[in-house]
């Protein structure tokens, strides 16, 4: 599939933004200044970006505890995200959500989610709404191999199929549910699970943007055309621990180093576009430098932003219809 020039540039920028955002959080979290818990998406950037390249603001996504990448790929601004993670009033959820509850409904980003397997049921609701309203939208759930064993996920696969919803189940399989290997914890295969529900199945190398873009394009087109839900199984690797501070004693010696050197989606993207003469490297270097400044500014702004006040406590608690 030929990818438009501007989509290539925008996708690279998203992946670079996710990488730098997460690398910076890795350092900042260790200082103890950030409240709560953060889970980093480094190494998995191509998945969120390759999928979201096919989505617009009228499509909806539900994310996971490892949600920063999905937010950025769906277009949530890094300044508001960084402030949110720092718990500041200027954050996208006014500092009351934090890393695991970043949401921006105006962009169809239903939220990161502290509950493993929490996203799939949400997108069944969103997909039902797309179907009933006939707005042409699709709903996408990102979930991990760990969440693939949750009842909520399996029930959602069933319900989406029964109702023929425009839903896309993106299983981001990084091989570990927290510290437990998927090879141990997941019975059967994701492919066979999809088949069990009669659901079309696609899979791809999640460290290769072009592979994800291709497979996601087919999967999303299927759902958008009204042919029912699909599963997209993305094989990838996370570079940092399950959470920040995880000593990762469950990973083999050299495993992460090999992923970083051989399966870096950004390096592979640069290699691919030069080999095929799709883009000029200097354009990518410019993006790298712009993103660096943007992240620096976001951290500075977040650190200097005001905290929520007691008076803010009851704001946004109830929704009026």
């Amino acid at each position: 599939m030929q990818i438009a020039h501007d989509i290539l540039l925008r996708s690279y920028r998203s992946m670079r933004t996710i990488r730098d955002f997460e690398e910076r959080l890795h350092v900042e979290f260790a200082t103890g200044e950030i409240p709560g818990f953060v889970h980093l998406y480094c190494g998995e950037e191509a998945s969120a970006v390759g999928v979201c390249a096919h989505l617009s603001d009228t499509d909806t996504i539900a994310s996971t505890h490892r949600g920063h990448g999905h937010c950025i790929a769906k277009g949530v601004g890094v300044e508001g995200m960084m402030a949110e993670i720092y718990g500041r009033k200027t954050g996208v959820c006014h500092g009351k959500g934090g890393s695991m509850h970043i949401a921006d409904l105006s962009l169809g980003m239903l939220g990161a989610n502290g509950i493993v397997g929490g996203g799939p049921p949400l997108i069944c609701g969103a997909a039902l709404s797309h179907k009933v309203l006939k707005d042409g939208g699709v709903a996408v759930a990102f979930y991990g191999d760990g969440a693939s064993n949750e009842g909520t996920t399996l029930e959602s696969l069933n319900l989406a199929m029964v109702w023929q919803l425009p839903a896309v189940f993106v299983c981001e399989d990084n091989g570990y549910g927290e510290a437990t290997g998927a090879s141990y914890a997941c019975a059967g295969t994701q492919k066979a699970r999809a088949a069990g529900f009669g659901m079309p199945y696609f899979d791809c190398d999640g460290t290769d943007f072009f592979a994800v873009h291709e497979a996601a394009g087919q999967a999303i087109a299927h759902a958008r055309a009204g042919h029912g839900p699909v599963m997209l199984h993305v094989h990838l690797a996370r570079w940092y621990g399950h959470f920040e501070g995880d000593a990762m004693t469950y990973r083999a010696n050299g495993e992460v180093a090999r992923e970083r050197s051989e399966h870096d989606c950004l390096q592979n993207f640069r290699k691919h576009v030069t080999e095929t003469s799709l883009l000029d490297l200097s354009a990518l270097d410019d993006i790298d430098s712009n993103v660096k400044d943007e992240i620096e500014a976001a951290v500075k702004a977040a650190k200097n932003a005001p905290l929520p006040e007691p008076a803010d406590l009851q704001a946004d608690v109830y929704v009026s219809y």
Binding site: F29, A30, T31, G32, G36, F243, E244, G245, D246
Partner: peptide
Amino acid sequence: ITMPKFGLAMT
């Protein structure tokens, strides 16, 4: 170089 925070509850 300061004492890092690991995880959720480290003080």
